[in-house]
């Protein structure tokens, strides 16, 4: 009888410990951590670049892809002399975006969330894009918003 009671005690202790371990990260999940120097630096870099990218979004030369990147969808919309610059802007933006998704996942101690974060951003970039900008549908076709 005494042995059985001790086993019961052990089980209760284990359940309580598991509950404590399980509950604390769940509380922390109310918000995602984005206040890190890494995120701030990438945000500033992208904000600065947006001044140059905005006219390209408006002309339809650059569009928002379904995977959370940007792409030069219509090179003909950019004068030949500026095409290399546009390509460079797109490449630099995609590099920052990849780093941003990775950094947010890492800052929240879940590197495996990178893909989910990318998908979330992909949807929100498109939802919040200005009308007239191009985005890629789920099927991969370019659509003018």
């Amino acid at each position: 009888m005494m042995k059985l009671w001790r086993m019961f005690e052990t089980l209760v202790t284990m359940v309580m410990m598991a509950a404590v371990i399980g509950a604390s990260p769940a509380v922390a999940q109310a918000n995602l951590e984005i206040n890190t120097p890494g995120v701030a630096a990438l945000q500033a870099s992208m904000q600065k670049r947006h001044g140059e990218l905005a006219p390209l979004y408006a002309s339809g030369a650059v569009g928002l892809t379904r995977d959370g990147n940007v792409a030069l969808r219509d090179p003909a919309a950019v004068p030949l002399a500026q095409r290399a610059t546009a390509n460079g802007l797109v490449a630099a933006e995609n590099q920052d975006r990849a780093a941003l998704y990775r950094e947010i996942a890492r800052a929240n101690n879940h590197p495996e969330w990178e893909g989910d974060i990318r998908n979330t951003f992909a949807q929100r970039w498109i939802d919040r894009a200005q009308s007239g900008w191009y985005y890629q549908s789920a099927a991969g076709a370019w659509v003018r918003k």
Binding site: Q29, A30, L32, I34
Partner: peptide
């Protein structure tokens, strides 16, 4: 429970960053 991706929180975080960038 811990490995569930917090979709709503991620959306909020994305919006805050998009606000800044755009």
């Amino acid at each position: 429970i811990n490995i569930y991706f917090p979709a709503a929180a991620a959306e909020k975080a994305a919006d805050r960053i998009i606000d800044e960038v755009w």
